[in-house]
Amino acid sequence: MLYRVEGIVIRSMDYGEGNKIITLCTEQYGKVGVLARGAKKIKSRHAALTQLFTYGEYVFFRQNNGLGTLNSGEIIESHSSLREDLYLAAYASYACELLDRTLQDEEVGSFWFTQLKACLSGLSLGKDPQIVMNLFEMKVLQAAGYGPSFTSCISCGKTEESVYVSPRLGGKLCSSCRHHDPAALKVSPQAIKLLALFEKMDLRRLGNVEVKTTTKAELKTVMRAFMDMQLGLKLKSLSFLDQLDKYEI
């Protein structure tokens, strides 16, 4: 059967002497694996279509939900700027690997596709990469069924202001319920407000925001704790991103 879909390349690997196998995140069919014959060759018409982060229209032949074979395609957005900048490439790689490891094969991918598309666009447009990524992490947690709650106490439901967050229990704790998790993180009111905003916001609506360095550090700590506790994924791209952060000036 011949398919024509819009997709984003979230994984690309060499196969044989001159071929590549790419994994596409698509809106209609979730994750799809496609073989691009001859794509490793410099003059291949498929070479550009198989690069990481490329958003395009792909036409491929596929039988019985197996590996597809690329027939033709057209690039909609190459996202070349993400591949040319080491830091942006690291953030984009993390986003793609996170989605790849979280999204199951053949799982309907409309939400995943739109949020990844918005994430890569935000990085390309120069929005704060950490804020973009923290919001993307929030959307991944929500789509995977582990979305935290920061609008009310996860234990009693009170909406009073609080500075305690429990990654283990899945959200904010009021001062009266903090004893349910002695290991709960204490964060600033500014960080709590941003986390509550991330909980409700679609990534496509994120504008250019300026966040204090100290608040960004809190957001990173909180979101990392939630990702580790709820998903527990060991991602090579995240390890590399952490190494880059250590040398950032």
Rank of each mutant, 00 (worst) to 15 (best):
L244V: 02
L141W: 08
L88K: 05
W112C: 04
L49W: 10
L98G: 04
K31E: 10
L135W: 06
F113A: 08
P167S: 02
D242G: 15
G38E: 04
T69Q: 14
M1H: 06
L88R: 08
D228I: 09
N208L: 11
H180C: 10
A225Q: 00
S93F: 02
E6M: 05
G126N: 01
L123V: 07
I76R: 15
V34C: 05
G38K: 00
A118M: 02
T69H: 15
I42Y: 09
W112L: 03
Y94I: 04
Y87V: 06
S78Q: 05
A36D: 06
D14L: 05
S93P: 08
H179K: 09
T114K: 15
L116M: 01
K31P: 11
L86E: 13
L173V: 05
L169R: 04
G33H: 08
L185V: 00
C177P: 07
A191T: 09
D242H: 14
L116R: 03
A39S: 07
N71A: 11
L116H: 10
R224G: 14
M201H: 12
S44V: 02
V9N: 02
V165W: 05
N64E: 15
S149T: 15
S80N: 12
M201L: 14
V59G: 15
G232A: 00
L219C: 10
L103H: 06
V163P: 11
S72K: 12
E161V: 08
V108D: 14
A143M: 08
D105C: 09
Q243V: 05
E77V: 11
E27A: 12
I22T: 06
F111G: 13
T54A: 07
